[in-house]
Simulated scan of single mutants.
Amino acid sequence: MNASTTTEILRYTAFTTDPAGGNPAGVILDAAHLADDRMLAVAAEVGYSETAFITAADLPRRRFRLRFFSPLAEVAFCGHATIATAVALAERHGAGELVFDTAAGEIRVATAVDGAGAVRATLTSAPTHSRPVEDAELDATLAALHWERADLDPSLPPHVAFGGNHHLVLAAATRARLADLAYDFDALGDVMRAHDWTTVQLVWQESDTGFHARDPFPPGGVVEDPATGAAAAAFGGYLRTIGRIRGATTLTLRQGEDMGRPSTLTVDVDPTDPRVRVAGHAVPIAP
């Protein structure tokens, strides 16, 4: 039986106000009756990089158990699907704070209606941290990407960063290098699975607080993610770790432009707080 005939599947795209932009996510508001294999089957049928499933709900307390599945596997945390789920709930139950219990821990999300009448959500990540990448990890990744060490920006050293999941952060020296992404899908997926990295976050710095990002996601069966909230949180923590955040700072990450699905992620980082806030809109899209 087709999964969509038994489960109501909402579809939202996150980190945009344009249905043609952002990162699409499936949202299942009542998945308490679904076993793990059914959730994976639904995620595979939906075909987006992630589908979010609410498996338990305490509506008076606005607290929910939330799980995430890519078409291939469960993922501990997904930022864009969290934003999409929060907006879907706020549209049905009113704006305010929501609490999600995830495999990555408790994630709080504030929702509010903006001046245009759209719901904007701000998630507070799990505590972030990062470490320098090891030479063998870097060499294997660069080989799979078909990049050279000379392609990297020396002012932003490669790190493995955590914001709910682990992500390898690599900074390109030029926008042209970032735009030219033609990697070995299987080889990169093997490297990432060996090190438990969810995405490789490729970034290019445009200004003091402005960055462009691309996120290959082969462990999830996805060539590239057009907006990656968990990686954005990890990146904010990474910048704090390497000393680039001196005071409370708001970053803007532009992602998805090279895919034709532009996304905007707003990232707030405080040098004294290991948690990072990632904000954006989400809008419904047709199947």
Rank of each mutant, 00 (worst) to 15 (best):
G96M: 01
A44W: 02
A179I: 07
L10N: 15
V113Q: 07
A76F: 03
R131M: 01
D30T: 06
A143Y: 00
D258Q: 14
L152P: 05
A227K: 06
A179S: 13
L265A: 09
A104E: 00
R92N: 08
A41L: 10
A286L: 15
F15K: 10
M39A: 07
A230C: 14
G79V: 05
S207H: 13
I245Q: 02
T266G: 11
L181M: 08
P284H: 11
L168A: 05
T241M: 13
L253S: 07
T264E: 13
R277F: 14
D30W: 06
T124R: 07
G164S: 11
H167E: 12
D18G: 12
A227N: 07
T241L: 04
V191F: 00
I83L: 06
V269Q: 13
R244D: 13
D190R: 08
A32G: 15
A81L: 03
L142W: 00
A43I: 04
D186T: 09
I54V: 15
D58C: 03
G260L: 14
I242W: 06
A230I: 13
W147A: 04
R38M: 12
H167F: 09
R175V: 11
P60L: 06
T111F: 03
E134A: 10
F68W: 03
V75T: 07
T55S: 04
A136N: 05
F217N: 00
P60D: 06
A84S: 09
V109H: 02
V46M: 01
A179Y: 06
F64E: 06
F53N: 01
L59K: 03
I83H: 02
A20E: 15
T7D: 10
T6R: 13
D114V: 07
G221N: 03
L10R: 14
A182S: 11
T174Q: 05
F235C: 08
P71E: 08
G256M: 05
W204P: 13
P60H: 10
G94C: 04
T7S: 14
V203D: 02
H33Y: 11
N165L: 08
T249Q: 02
P71M: 01
Y183S: 00
I28W: 01
A230F: 07
D18F: 10
R38I: 12
A248Y: 14
L72V: 12
R254Q: 13
A176V: 02
I285K: 06
G256A: 14
T7F: 14
L170G: 00
A90V: 08
L168W: 01
S130N: 02
R277Q: 15
A126C: 06
Q201T: 14
G237R: 07
T122G: 05
Y238T: 13
L59M: 09
T111M: 03
T199W: 11
F68E: 06
L138V: 04
R177N: 09
